[in-house]
Amino acid sequence: MNRKIALWLLWVGFIAYLLFLAPPLHLEETLTLLKNIFTLNWANVNPVILSLFSLVGIWLLIYSGVLFFDGRMQWIPFYPFAIASIASGTLGLIPYLALREPNQQFSGRKDAFLQLLDSRFFGIALSLSTLGLLIYAFLGDWVGFWQQFQGDRFINGMSLAFCLFCLLFPTVLGDDMARRRWNNPQVFWVTALVPLFGPLVYLCLRPAISDNVAQQTPTSFTSSRAR
């Protein structure tokens, strides 16, 4: 219950920050930025901002690699929140994290989509993409990015959303490890404490979930810590 309350407070607090405390929203500039990104007119976009925008997408895929399995066993599926997260980032994700119940099991068969999310290829592809994005970001204008962070609500909110993705991942990590019968406290803490690359390496190394896993709830150090 404390976890749920904390997540709802975080969600409400982030919304309040964006509405009342964040820098002003420059709507025309934001729409121009999004147009340039989606039309691949990247020459007119600061590489730092383009990389940050793409890394938010990487985070959504990281969470998808965990929560689509989790949602199979919840009273509410994950996919509506995944769709909402595409447009709103953590604002669409946090309600699912607050509504879900602790879940250490998975049953049934994996369809092609879940098999992709469960594959090492998925984790490796995300890791290589992230490395490329970070290298590209170093070529950008960091002074200009910092100025926009201080003066533009969209850039400011997107940057904070990236940080929240890092902060919240441990809340679902323990249950995913328990579903895979991977009771390893060292792996949990390394994954939880190393931002972005911890979860990426975890996706590359974690054992696959077997089809028709028996619905048993194992006792897991990692799950209890994650809650």
Rank of each mutant, 00 (worst) to 15 (best):
K4T: 15
A6E: 14
W8H: 03
L9A: 15
L9S: 14
L10K: 15
L10R: 11
W11V: 04
V12W: 00
G13W: 01
F14Y: 13
I15H: 10
A16I: 14
F20P: 03
L21V: 13
H26Q: 09
E29S: 10
T30V: 09
T32Q: 13
K35S: 13
N36F: 04
N36P: 06
N36H: 08
F38G: 08
L40C: 10
N41Q: 15
N41H: 13
V48N: 02
F53N: 02
G57K: 08
I58E: 12
W59L: 02
W59D: 05
L60M: 14
S64W: 02
G65H: 01
V66Q: 09
L67W: 01
F68K: 03
F68Q: 00
R72V: 15
I76H: 05
I76F: 11
P80D: 06
F81C: 10
F81Y: 11
F81P: 11
A82I: 04
A84E: 05
S85C: 14
I86F: 14
S88Y: 06
G89E: 09
T90P: 11
T90R: 03
L91R: 00
L91V: 11
P95L: 10
Y96L: 04
L99P: 08
R100Q: 10
E101H: 08
S107T: 15
S107D: 12
R109C: 08
K110N: 07
A112M: 09
L116K: 01
L117P: 14
R120T: 08
F121D: 04
F122E: 11
G123L: 03
I124A: 15
I124W: 06
A125L: 14
A125W: 00
L126H: 07
S127R: 00
G132A: 12
G132Y: 01
L133Q: 09
I135A: 15
W142N: 09
W142D: 05
V143H: 10
G144L: 08
Q150L: 15
R153V: 07
N156K: 01
G157K: 02
G157S: 14
S159N: 01
L160R: 02
L160H: 14
A161D: 10
L164T: 04
L167S: 08
L167I: 06
L168R: 01
P170H: 03
V172W: 05
G174Y: 00
D176I: 03
M177V: 08
A178Q: 05
R179H: 03
R181F: 09
N184L: 13
P185T: 01
Q186I: 07
Q186R: 11
W189G: 06
T191Q: 04
L193C: 11
V194D: 06
V194I: 10
V194M: 05
P195V: 00
L196I: 14
F197P: 10
F197W: 07
Y202G: 13
Y202N: 09
R206A: 15
S210M: 07
S210D: 01
D211V: 00
D211I: 05
A214P: 07
T217Y: 13
P218F: 09
F221P: 06
T222I: 08
S223W: 05
R227Y: 15
